[in-house]
Simulated scan of single mutants.
Amino acid sequence: MHKEIVDSKFLESMSGKRPFLKRMFTVFISQEPKRIQEIKDALQSQDVERLRHLAHSLKGGAATIGVDRVRECCLNLEKASKAKDMKAALTHLDSLEKEMRNAYAFMFDYLAEH
């Protein structure tokens, strides 16, 4: 089964808190591109500790707003950095960037519709 971009159960649980959810999405869209750039920089400079930390903190942020596929990519990136496997980390970064684009698109649509 393919996971949803944003977990529908999470969205349902937030249906009465739409302004709050919109604010969370807005913050995610405005903050996270910077963190993705920091992840890329850490990967390029082979800073595994920083990479692990960044992946871990993005994982937490993603979990909070129900973007499970992003959370999974972060978990994989975190594991790769712990194992100091930069080749795997690069692959996971590609997946992460793709899932982040999906998440942004979903959030932009949501914000436009509500």
Rank of each mutant, 00 (worst) to 15 (best):
Met100Lys: 07
Glu72Pro: 02
Gly16His: 10
Arg18Ile: 09
Gly61Leu: 04
Glu99His: 05
Glu38Cys: 02
Lys82Arg: 15
Val70His: 04
Ser45Asn: 05
Lys82Trp: 13
Gln46Phe: 09
Thr91Val: 13
Val27Phe: 11
Ile36His: 11
Cys74Met: 06
Glu97Thr: 07
Ala55Ser: 05
Lys34Leu: 15
Ser81Asp: 03
Lys34Met: 12
Lys34Pro: 05
Leu75Pro: 04
Ser81Met: 11
Arg101Pro: 01
Arg23Ile: 03
Leu90Glu: 14
His56Trp: 05
Ala83Met: 14
Ile29His: 11
Met86Asp: 07
Arg71Thr: 12
Glu32Asn: 15
Met24Gly: 06
Ala42Glu: 03
Asp47Lys: 14
His53Pro: 04
Gly66Ser: 00
Pro33His: 10
Ala55Glu: 00
Lys17Thr: 12
Ala63Gln: 03
Leu54Gly: 06
Cys74Ala: 02
Ala80Ile: 10
Glu49Cys: 09
Leu21Cys: 10
Asn76Thr: 13
Ile29Lys: 07
Phe25Gln: 05
Ala88Leu: 14
Ile65Gln: 00
Arg69Pro: 03
Cys73Ala: 15
Arg35Asn: 11
Lys87Gly: 13
Thr26Trp: 06
Arg50Leu: 10
Val27Gly: 11
Phe20Asn: 08
Pro33Ser: 02
Lys59Cys: 02
Asp94Arg: 08
Arg101Thr: 12
Glu97Phe: 04
Phe28Tyr: 08
Lys40Gln: 08
Gly16Lys: 10
Ala62Arg: 01
Leu21Phe: 07
Glu99Asp: 11
Arg52Asn: 08
Lys22Glu: 13
Ser57Gly: 04
Glu38Thr: 11
Met24Tyr: 02
Lys17Arg: 10
Leu51Tyr: 01
Glu99Phe: 00
Gln44Asn: 14
Arg69Ala: 03
Ala89Asp: 06
Leu51Asp: 02
His53Ile: 08
Pro33Gln: 03
Glu38Asp: 12
Arg35Lys: 15
Glu78His: 13
Lys22Gly: 13
Ala62Gln: 02
Leu77Arg: 02
Ala89His: 04
Lys17Trp: 10
Glu49Ser: 12
Lys59Trp: 08
